[in-house]
Nucleic acid binder design. Structure first.
Length: 602
DNA sequence: GTGGATGAG
DNA sequence: CGCTCATCCAC
């Protein structure tokens, strides 16, 4: 009999009574057990000192160089070689350099007023620049793609810019059946048919699969090699070992192809995978077997558990005046429920190594997209807001169009501008985002400028200390196949003139006083019959001779038609980014600068 | 629709 | 630590 830990025998043993479930042929052969699958295996894989690694690779440096990434005066990433010098994220750049004179400090890329794309400038100033995490997002996506490619039947959930959960249950199941064909069929003489338990599992070779966490009594008996002669292994352990094997291969692949080292945790569910991923870093992986769970969790400060790191964890600690998981095991579910209501059940289960949350790819990847900037020097003149808006707009344009490479039909329902005035809480304004094909800086900035006007109203002076610009309601727009016809009838669309009744949604550039002077303003937009949006020329395109403007408007209409075509095409085929037809060639380069650029990236 | 709270890193 | 980003929910 294993006594999981000393001192607290009986009552808590039951807390972990699901660690060795009997596994039957039904479990193995049925396909949709989901989170209750006794052979479930989940991994959390995260990149080591990710931002630092991105910069190191961008600069083609040796992995051994001590490098940190700085954001203004503080550090946001410290490479492992730099940590050897005792540098931590809390340090100021100066202290870090004191600890390591050879330290390479790279400032994150920034958007700079007047520049369309983020870059690495020499004159970085928090008053005029805004940090860009773009490089890291792109690199992150590469890694995620490799997970998905390697595991066509696995589920991959991006958890943050440098972490992903991977559900290995299916890939492992496939391997189990392939490697051990004798369990793929219920034996004729099985006593309970498909509900008979599986035969004893094969011996497991844990060598090279990572660090295997062991229960205390085995662990203290020393000799990791003991586990190889462990007669107590289960089929779940086999499953873990296969996942570890797959995980290791993928990690090696990522390392050789992209250069990043990663650390992974492999266990029966998400929270345990996440927990043991940090057991040993960098460039390593850790496996938590079910039988080791009680000993592993018992002494653990529960505030290290995902979602218990904040107020909830504090409240728990305070309420019961305790700090470890073991301490909390004596608290009944009812008791927790009476004080923590909603959260009680999952807290209770987490403490017992249970986590029923699924690994699920986020369908939209995200529901909103936000770019923000705290202003060291507050905006006083409302007119000074525009420069920041353009910078935020540039970031959003880049990110949205980037996301569209893999998701061409991604569309934001609305755009929101937040501004905080001094100490006051922030105020916001939002509007429906216009349905234009090319989401350029200008399109976004124009929409945002309007919101800005609403927010600052007509105040002569303001005191704005923070600005945030966001897309919300980001979704894949679904469109019918027949709408391709819509493209071919674009001519009709073009004929459609501005004289429409009344609009229920705001046009991007409404003919009103927000726009300066130009007498053409009212003639520089059209309303598409298809999407019922008003599409307008940029302000700077709306100037010049009437013929010129008319020409540009025609181009715009054509592009808009292209947009519908592209959307439809993307929807009806494989999702690859379609090339707009016969457009740009005959187009003058007058205005394409900010346009083509964004649609087809690179 | 707006703003606050929470949490991750 | 200060900053950046995302989600959820009450009003």
């Amino acid at each position: 009999m294993n006594s999981p830990w000393k001192g607290k025998a009986k009552a808590t043993n039951q807390d972990y009574d699901d660690l060795r479930p009997t596994i039957t042929y039904r479990h193995l052969l049925s396909n949709n057990l989901g989170v209750r699958d006794p052979l479930r295996v989940v991994a959390l894989c995260d990149s080591d000192a990710f931002y630092a690694a991105c910069e190191r690779i961008r600069l083609e440096l040796d992995p051994s160089v001590p490098i940190v990434v700085q954001q203004w005066e503080s550090l946001i990433a410290v490479s492992y070689p730099a940590r050897e010098f005792g540098i931590s994220r809390m340090d100021k750049i100066k202290d870090a350099k004191k600890k390591c004179p050879n330290l390479l400090a790279v400032h994150v890329a920034t958007y700079k007023e007047g520049e369309k794309e983020p870059g690495y400038w020499t004159d970085i100033d928090t008053r005029t620049h805004k940090v860009s995490l773009d490089l890291y997002r792109r690199e992150s996506n590469k890694i995620i793609s490799m997970f998905k490619e390697a595991l066509p039947t696995g589920e991959v959930e991006k958890a943050s810019i440098d972490e992903a959960f991977i559900d290995f249950t299916r890939p492992v199941r496939e391997q189990l059946l392939e490697r051990y064909p004798y369990i793929a069929q219920v034996p004729v003489d099985a006593p309970n048919g498909i509900d008979s338990p599986l035969p004893p599992p094969p011996p497991i070779k844990w060598d090279d699969l990572g660090t295997v966490i062991l229960p205390e009594e085995i662990d203290s008996a020393g000799e990791q090699s003991n586990i190889e002669v462990d007669g107590d292994a289960t089929w779940h352990d086999v499953a873990l070992s296969i996942a570890a094997e797959l995980m290791r291969k993928i990690r090696e692949d990522i390392h050789s192809k992209l250069g990043y080292t990663t650390s992974a945790g492999i266990a029966r569910n998400k929270f345990l995978a996440k927990l043991c991923a940090s057991y040993k870093k960098p460039n390593s992986q850790t496996i938590l077997r079910n039988r080791a769970i009680p000993d592993y969790l018992h002494p653990l400060p529960f505030q290290k558990i995902r979602f218990l790191g904040g107020k909830l964890g504090d409240a728990l600690a305070k309420e019961y005046d305790v700090s470890t998981v073991g301490d909390l095991l004596t608290v009944s579910l009812d008791e927790i429920q009476s004080k923590f209501g909603e959260n009680a059940l999952w807290v209770y289960e987490f403490l017992r190594g249970i986590d029923r949350t699924e690994v699920k790819e986020k369908s939209a990847l995200f529901k909103s997209m936000l770019a923000s900037k705290n202003l060291p020097k507050p905006i006083i003149q409302p007119s000074d807001g525009h420069q920041w808006i353009r910078i935020l707009a540039a970031e959003l344009a880049l990110r949205l169009n980037d996301a569209r490479v893999s998701m061409p039909t991604l569309w934001p329902k609305s755009i929101v501008l937040h501004a905080r005035k001094g100490y006051e809480t922030s105020r916001s304004k939002q509007a429906t985002f216009p349905f234009v094909r090319n989401v350029t800086v200008d399109v976004i900035a124009t929409a945002a400028d309007k919101l800005w006007k609403d927010l600052t109203d007509d105040a002569k002076t303001v005191n704005i200390t923070s600005v945030q610009l966001a897309f919300t309601g980001l979704e894949k727009t679904e469109m019918g196949q027949k709408s391709i016809e819509g493209f071919f009838t674009t001519r009709d669309v073009q004929q459609t003139s501005l004289k429409r009744s009344r609009e229920d949604d705001e046009p991007l550039v409404s003919p009103e006083k927000t726009l300066p002077t130009s007498s053409y303003v009212e003639a520089v937009s059209f309303k598409c019959t298809r999407c019922r949006k008003t599409i307008a020329l940029r302000e700077d395109q709306a100037t010049g001779g009437p013929n010129e403007v008319a020409q540009r408007l025609a181009t715009l209409r054509s592009e808009h038609g292209d947009f519908h075509f592209a959307q439809d095409l993307a929807h009806s085929t494989d999702g690859s980014v379609p090339v707009p037809r016969g457009s740009s060639s005959k187009r003058k380069k007058v205005e394409s600068e900010g346009i083509a650029k964004f649609f087809i990236k690179k």
